[in-house]
């Protein structure tokens, strides 16, 4: 299968005054379409930085990042926003729903920034996604009226609304109990089965078990890259 994500010679430095912090040191990585990847590593290993670059929220200091064979490491801020809104879906540890919006409105938010005219049809699509994640009964609820697991399911529905190539999860189960975590991971696995590429950061080994491939980072290097047996 073709690589949807291809990273070559990726370097990321942070500059704090006179001090240069070398967070990512010449990383090479390919992720195939339809893969399910867990990024692991202790804090300071550079996994969050790598995730931010993969999520087009940050730009590498040097090296290339091809998403869908398109070099996006040099794109400007507006173009990166475009890439995020069209090709990427985000799931965060703290769900990051907008508290003033209802479930449906939260789900349709990415469409707004794609410049899609929100109409009955798009709304129907959002309702469909909400039903798919099991929240068909709570369309008009606001995030604070939902449990953590339910909020994360809304976030999953939101990440799917623009039909992305890659779903990026930043510790998607970090705030959830183990039972709910299993539910969420089952849902992600289901999405992976229907062809979505998923990349997630996690601390926990039993969550990483769900992935097909586990990449461990340490001190800005890829320490290990292991395929789980199916």
């Amino acid at each position: 299968m073709a690589a949807i994500v291809r990273i070559q010679n990726l370097v990321k430095n942070y500059y704090m005054g006179d001090v240069t912090v070398n967070v990512l040191k010449r990383i090479d990585l390919e992720i195939e379409t339809g893969d399910f990847v867990a990024l692991m590593g202790p804090s300071g290993s550079g996994k969050s930085t790598l995730m931010n670059i993969l999520g087009c929220l940050d730009r590498p200091t040097s090296g290339q990042y091809f998403l869908n064979d398109r070099d996006i490491s040099k794109l400007g801020d507006d173009r990166l926003s475009d890439v995020r809104s069209r090709y990427l879906g985000f799931i965060f540890q703290s769900y990051n729903l907008l508290p003033q919006y209802t479930v449906v409105e939260n789900i349709e938010l990415p469409l707004l920034y794609q410049g899609i005219n929100l109409n009955a049809q798009t709304k129907q699509r959002c309702i469909g996604l909400a039903q798919m994640v099991g929240l068909g009964e709570r369309l008009d609820h606001r995030p604070l009226q939902l449990s953590g697991g339910q909020q994360q399911r809304v976030a999953i529905a939101r990440s799917l609304v623009n039909d992305p190539n890659v779903i990026l999860g930043d510790e998607p189960t970090g705030n959830l109990d183990s039972k709910t975590s299993v539910e969420i991971m089952e849902m992600l696995t289901g999405l992976n089965k229907i062809g979505k590429t998923i990349i997630m950061v996690t601390h926990e080994n039993d969550i990483a078990e769900w992935a097909r491939r586990v990449i461990r980072l340490r001190d800005g290097h890829i320490e290990s890259d292991v395929r789980n047996r199916d």
Partner: peptide
């Protein structure tokens, strides 16, 4: 931050 991550441009 959330809006930016979901694709909002600066001008949005």
């Amino acid at each position: 931050g959330i809006r930016r991550a979901l694709g909002a441009k600066r001008k949005d």
